[in-house]
């Protein structure tokens, strides 16, 4: 047990990186009400861009991270165009971009499925090297904190509010003069930009960018969002706290993963475990509402419907 606690900094750092990715998912899935599967590709794009720029073009690693952000934004833009201008359903638009990104990510890495970046040769922002884990976590707190602060400001502006309104009620948004195509595109751009930053950090932490690094990313992102909601939902009800709960959700997820691996789960079954885990957490709110309907609330429901009948008759 003590050994497990001593090994915690690694899943915490990894959880924070994935928590940042989950903030991207939160923007599309929760704010924009758009299940965006682009992220499975844009995570890898972020990793590939960062690693290639740093190792092959000697670009400053922070600049490379900014470039990764831009590349992710571009991916989100493509999905947005496919959805709003080509009329392709949300999920399919994301799948199309994601598929295309597989080839593009390979192309960025000159056809290699895996490109390494090591703390031995480069000064990395984050790394899994044990004696640097503490600073890695500190840096992650700063980076994630800064991104949350910027998002808090942005979603309070006129543009940010329009994006939130679009996700909430498209009909009302258009009636109030909001171009919902534009707001959806902006949301997707920002979301995938953040996901790519996470990919850039992840590649440093794991020591390489891999063309498959984003496989199932959406599931892990959703897991973090949902765990954050289930665990902290009642307590955290303003925007900053919500985003923080998403990051905590990512951390909890990785601690749980570390624990089940420790308890002997074959790592081949990790994706199966993740999917089942997310399925259950997605089901909990649904089951809760079903239970609420079955129990005493049914009495209230009756009175409401009687009132409605009366109202209609009187009209």
């Amino acid at each position: 047990m003590i050994e497990f606690i001593q090994s915690l900094p690694s899943p915490i750092a990894q959880g924070m990186i994935w928590g940042l990715m989950a903030i991207g998912v939160y923007i599309t899935y929760k704010i924009l009400d758009f299940a965006d599967l682009t992220v499975d590709g844009s995570l890898g794009t972020g990793g590939a861009v960062l690693v290639v720029l740093t190792t092959q073009f000697n670009v400053n690693i922070y600049l490379a991270l900014v470039a990764a952000f831009a590349a992710g934004c571009l991916a989100g833009f493509v999905t947005g165009i496919l959805h709003t201008k080509f009329g392709i359903p949300a999920i399919l638009s994301g799948i199309l971009t994601q598929l295309a990104l597989y080839s593009i990510n390979l192309g960025i890495m000159s056809g290699r499925a895996n490109t390494t970046i090591s703390w031995r040769n480069y000064k990395l922002i984050v790394s899994s090297k044990t004696d640097e884990l503490f600073f890695t976590i500190l840096k992650l707190i700063v980076i994630v904190g800064a991104i949350i602060a910027v998002l808090y400001w942005f979603f309070g502006t006129e543009i940010g509010r329009s994006i939130r309104a679009t996700g909430c009620n498209q009909n009302m948004s258009r009636a109030n003069g909001i171009n919902t195509d534009t707001t959806k595109i902006i949301g997707l751009v920002i979301s995938n930009g953040i996901v790519a930053v996470s990919g850039g950090l992840l590649s440093q932490f794991s020591g390489s960018a891999d063309v498959n690094m984003g496989r199932g990313a959406i599931v892990i992102g959703l897991a973090a969002v949902i765990i954050g909601e289930v665990v902290f939902g009642k307590l955290f009800n303003n925007f900053v706290l919500r985003l923080m709960s998403v990051v905590f959700g990512g951390i909890i997820y990785y601690i749980v993963i570390a624990l089940v691996l420790k308890l002997g789960l074959n790592s081949n079954n990790l994706k199966l475990f993740s999917a089942a885990f997310v399925a259950v957490f997605l089901a909990i709110p649904y089951w809760k509402t079903k239970m609420a309907v079955k129990q005493p609330a049914s009495k209230d429901k009756k009175t409401v419907s009687q009132k409605e009948v009366k109202g209609n008759a009187a009209n």
Binding site: E158, R161, R164, A165, C168, N169, M172, A175, N176, G177
Partner: peptide
């Protein structure tokens, strides 16, 4: 349900309506 955004505050809904027809900017909402 159709005329308002349920997940947004009363004042946010009103502020959106107040900006109807104006291009949204990065000014506070």
């Amino acid at each position: 349900m159709m005329g308002t955004a349920a997940d947004m505050q009363i004042e946010e809904n009103l502020a959106l309506a107040l900006r109807r027809g104006k291009k949204p900017t990065l000014r506070p909402g």
